[in-house]
Amino acid sequence: MSTHAEDDVIASVSIEGSPASSSAAPAPNADRAVASRTRTFDTRRLSRDFADQDAFLYLEDFLAPEVTAQLVQSARGLLDEVNRNYLPGHKQGGSVSRHTIDRLAPFIAELYRSKELIGWLEQLSGDKLQVSPADDPHAYALYYYTRAGDHIGWHYDTSYYDGRRYTLLLGVIDESSCRLDYELHTRNADVPDQPGSVQIPPGGLVFFDGDKLRHRITPAGANEMRVSLTFEYVTDPNMRPWRRFISNMKDAIAYFGFRQVFRQMTKRGKDHA
């Protein structure tokens, strides 16, 4: 496990023909950009689809183009901050936590807290959603697949909170053969498991209940690059102390590194001293 630049990434990967070196454009207004898209959707029908698929929805084209472009710019700008991890038999790849994003890519935090986005997701889920607590490094995070073999094995996004935790997965960069494989209805003994697989393009969306969807990301090939962004929303932000310990250890070992996770805990303790 180490923290260093992804120097093996092909820097020329771009979106919509724009070079990675193009000048930065002003960040869009998150609420307006989300509203411009969600008002074109049949949200009532999408909500039925979400329920019929046991709390799962995939949209190939969700984000406004200017939002996708801003996320691509942020993902490239954070390459030097990527923490890489390797867990034999389960995962290999890199990640950047919300704490680093807060410092260096504030637009992502603005999009995460968008009232328009949260309100639309509440319509889909039928739940009242809250942002994750400020010390949760998974609240919003970028995940990088930039080396041959980068992947994550079959898993659930298990909630350690007292309530449900929903995952919103947004495609950012996809110059890869990686796919999201998933199985629906695995927690419902009365309905047969339903397998599926999608390759999420930039601007695409997957929204699901983390405790219900069994899923994985298939391995990247040589000279490929995939970056995704996840947002986590909860129905109850409370977490029992022993679950907090397990969650922190998992985040430190499998994702963001001990320095990132426990530095934030130390900072929080000093702030309350």
Rank of each mutant, 00 (worst) to 15 (best):
M1W: 01
S2N: 13
H4I: 06
H4Y: 12
A5S: 09
D8W: 14
V9K: 02
V9Q: 02
I10N: 15
S12I: 12
V13H: 15
V13Q: 04
S18C: 08
P19F: 09
S23H: 07
A24S: 15
A25I: 08
P26S: 13
A30F: 04
D31I: 03
A33S: 15
R37D: 07
D42L: 01
D42Y: 08
R45G: 00
L46W: 15
S47Y: 06
D49M: 11
Q53T: 02
D54V: 02
D54I: 05
L57R: 10
Y58S: 10
F62L: 08
L63M: 12
P65I: 11
V67W: 08
A69M: 14
A75T: 00
G77I: 00
L78V: 07
E81Y: 09
E81P: 00
R84V: 00
Y86D: 09
P88I: 03
G89D: 09
G94I: 03
R98H: 05
D102V: 11
D102R: 15
P106E: 10
A109K: 08
L111A: 07
S114L: 05
K115Y: 04
K115P: 00
E116H: 10
E116P: 03
L117H: 11
I118L: 11
E122R: 14
Q123T: 11
Q123A: 04
Q123I: 10
Q123W: 05
L124V: 08
G126R: 11
K128E: 11
S132N: 02
D135T: 09
P137M: 05
Y140I: 06
Y145D: 14
T146S: 15
T146M: 00
R147H: 10
A148Y: 01
G149D: 00
G149L: 06
D150C: 11
G153D: 14
W154H: 04
H155P: 01
D157H: 07
Y160K: 09
Y161W: 10
D162Y: 01
D162N: 15
Y166L: 13
T167W: 01
L168H: 02
L170E: 02
I173E: 12
I173T: 07
L180M: 14
L184G: 10
L184Y: 02
T186E: 14
R187D: 14
R187H: 12
N188T: 14
N188K: 14
D193G: 01
P195E: 05
G196I: 07
S197H: 00
V198Y: 09
I200F: 01
P202R: 04
G203A: 10
F207G: 05
D209I: 01
L213D: 01
R214C: 09
I217C: 13
A220F: 00
A222N: 04
N223Y: 06
E224K: 02
M225W: 13
V227R: 01
V227H: 04
S228N: 12
T230G: 06
T235H: 02
T235Q: 11
T235V: 07
P237L: 04
R240M: 09
P241L: 07
P241E: 00
F245L: 15
S247Y: 13
S247Q: 11
M249A: 11
K250Q: 13
D251F: 05
A252S: 14
A252Y: 05
F256S: 03
F256H: 10
F258P: 02
F258E: 03
R263C: 07
M265N: 13
R268E: 09
R268F: 00
H272N: 02
